[in-house]
């Protein structure tokens, strides 16, 4: 038996909006730790890892580990039927081939339930090693989204370079080229407006902007994004989900042939 009650139901809608462009079908894993998902895009170039910790739910019951295969477009359709202030409860019985989403209005005067069929999904679970990164950039998520959007209108790929000067986002296309340089800036009114660049070693990597732009669909989940770069690893673009967990996107770089 599984019963997860999330008071801030809108959070689940935002999570779905953040990942459904990248991944079509995925297994949601439920354990005593929390509600999680790990899935790759169909080209196996990007990977998303989601964790919503058990402590973040008002009520969390998961009698045994359960993996529920869901089509994310269908799940988003169901969640769209909830009100923005609704409490969402996810329920499933052991061995059941369906999951139920229950929506309660804040004043308890409207209660709906939507049952969705589960599906069998063959998915490989990858081990993500703990790693030291050459550089870690922490910046406003809206600024990162704007840079990715702006550069995608010029080129298809972005080179992210971190040096003593700061972090540079560069692209090149048929109509021209663009460079955006950000310097560390901690003299801001609010901590979430700061740009912090932690560099152990200079690093420069090339990534497809299409994927970066897809990751920025998670912007409504957090004011801050953290970008971790290492020349030997996929980049990690992380959005923390307040008091609950995170969405991490991993993207394999493009390399010179």
């Amino acid at each position: 038996m599984l019963e997860l009650r999330l008071v801030q139901g809108s959070l689940l809608k935002k999570v779905l909006d953040a990942i459904k462009e990248l991944v079509k079908d995925a297994n949601f894993d439920c354990s005593t730790t929390g509600f999680s998902l790990q899935a790759m895009d169909s080209s196996h170039v990007a990977l998303v890892s989601l964790l919503l910790r058990a402590e973040g739910f008002e009520h969390y019951r998961c009698d045994r580990n359960l993996s529920m295969g869901m089509n994310l477009d269908n799940m988003a359709k169901m969640l769209k039927c909830s009100g923005n202030d609704d409490i969402i409860t996810i329920k499933a019985d052991d061995g059941s081939d369906s999951v139920t989403f229950m929506f309660e209005s804040p004043t308890q005067d409207k209660i709906s339930d939507f049952e969705m069929k589960l599906m069998d999904i063959d998915s490989e679970h990858l081990g993500i090693p703990e790693a030291e990164y050459h550089a870690i950039i922490r910046m406003p998520s809206a600024e990162f989204a704007k840079i990715c959007r702006d550069l995608a209108s010029i080129g298809d790929t972005v080179v992210i370079s971190v040096s003593k000067e700061g972090v540079k986002f560069s692209t090149r296309g048929d109509i021209g080229a663009a460079n955006v340089v950000l310097r560390q800036n901690t003299t801001v009114d609010k901590p979430e407006e700061a740009t912090i660049i932690e560099m152990n070693e200079p690093v420069s990597l090339t990534f497809a902007l299409r994927y970066m732009n897809s990751f920025t669909k998670a912007t409504p989940l957090s004011n801050i994004v953290t970008i971790s770069l290492s020349s030997e690893l996929p980049v990690v673009v992380e959005y923390k989900i307040a008091e609950m967990g995170y969405i991490r996107f991993y993207l394999a770089p493009k390399i010179e042939e």
Binding site: H44, V45, G127, I255, E257
Partner: peptide, 14 residues
């Protein structure tokens, strides 16, 4: 020309 690497090139199956 750039070659797009895959996630599997870096992370192994559990």
């Amino acid at each position: 020309p750039c070659l797009q690497r895959k996630i599997m090139d870096y992370f192994k199956e559990d």
